[in-house]
């Protein structure tokens, strides 16, 4: 309990990185997200949990405007990143996505070499002036994603030839290579075995020191293990949002309790 209170205190003192106000998302006629208000803090892992189809992935994809690629998706309300509305007409989603990186459910390395996978982001954003700098960024990113030792001797090998867990960590390296401020992870471990999952979870905990991490997960144990804050979504509503310890031990809403105890979901 001591640990918990300590953690709560550190969370409270941190800045709000992303603030969502009255966010509503419609897919054509269906109302996928209903009046969601949430504040995501810097240097924190925030977990979104909830049953399938509850809108947690949809909401996550709103945070870096990946939903723009879906024609029928409409987003209402404000999402502020450092106080700036990311849905403002002046915001270029490409610039936003360089700041808010994303890791997907299925590991999706480019069918290119490991090096090129990581170097792609820095290249298109012009982060490196020469080959040496690019090499440095690639190494740093692969180290941060805890995969450097495994791939340092075969950077020219195709990224698709790695194991599932390695591929996912490569995708994380690719995401951190562009120096984002927020890292969104959409069920990053759902395609991985328990050992790879443990490696990625450990990594997420390390990433917290630099980034604000938002993770969508189906596994409540995972949410409990890696996150400091948890949001529970149900049928498009944000039911409850609070410190992870509190959500899992003493939820306020009966629906949250039913879900974490396995009665619904």
């Amino acid at each position: 309990m001591n640990d918990m209170t300590l953690m709560d205190k550190t969370v409270d003192t941190q800045n709000i990185k992303i603030a969502a106000r009255d966010v509503n998302v419609h897919y054509g006629d269906s109302h996928a997200i209903k009046d969601v208000n949430v504040e995501i803090e810097d240097k924190t892992v925030t977990a979104f949990i909830g049953p399938s189809g509850c809108g947690k992935s949809t909401f996550l994809r709103c945070l870096n405007r990946m939903n723009d690629t879906i024609g029928i998706c409409r987003v209402k309300g404000d999402i502020l990143l450092d106080g700036e509305d990311i849905y403002d007409r002046r915001v270029d989603p490409v610039q936003l996505r360089a700041k808010v990186g994303m890791v997907f459910q299925k590991p999706n390395p480019f069918p290119k070499s490991i090096y090129d996978n990581v170097a792609y982001g820095p290249r298109i954003h012009g982060l490196a002036r020469n080959k040496a700098e690019l090499d440095e960024i690639v190494e740093k990113s692969l180290r941060r994603a805890a995969i450097w030792d495994e791939v340092k001797d075969r950077l020219d090998a195709p990224g698709t030839g790695l194991s599932g867990g390695q591929q996912q960590r490569l995708c994380i390296a690719r995401a951190v290579a562009t120096e984002p401020e927020v890292l969104l992870m959409d069920e990053p471990c759902s395609a991985l075995d328990p050992i790879a999952t443990a490696q990625v979870e450990e990594l997420i905990d390390e990433l917290r020191s630099r980034y604000s991490v938002v993770i969508v997960t189906h596994s409540m144990q995972q949410a409990a293990r890696v996150s400091q804050k948890t949001a529970f979504f149900h049928l498009g509503n944000l039911v409850e949002f609070g410190p992870t310890g509190q959500i899992f031990t003493n939820p306020e809403d009966s629906r949250t309790e039913s879900y974490i105890t396995g009665r619904i979901g």
Partner: peptide
């Protein structure tokens, strides 16, 4: 070409045209 490739490119901040010409078209 699987949509995950487009997502991956967009996710690291590539523009749509970059995603198409760097990743989708070669595949």
């Amino acid at each position: 070409v699987p949509p995950s490739i487009r997502d991956a490119a967009l996710g690291v901040g590539a523009s749509k045209m970059q995603a198409v010409f760097h990743h989708v078209l070669p595949l």
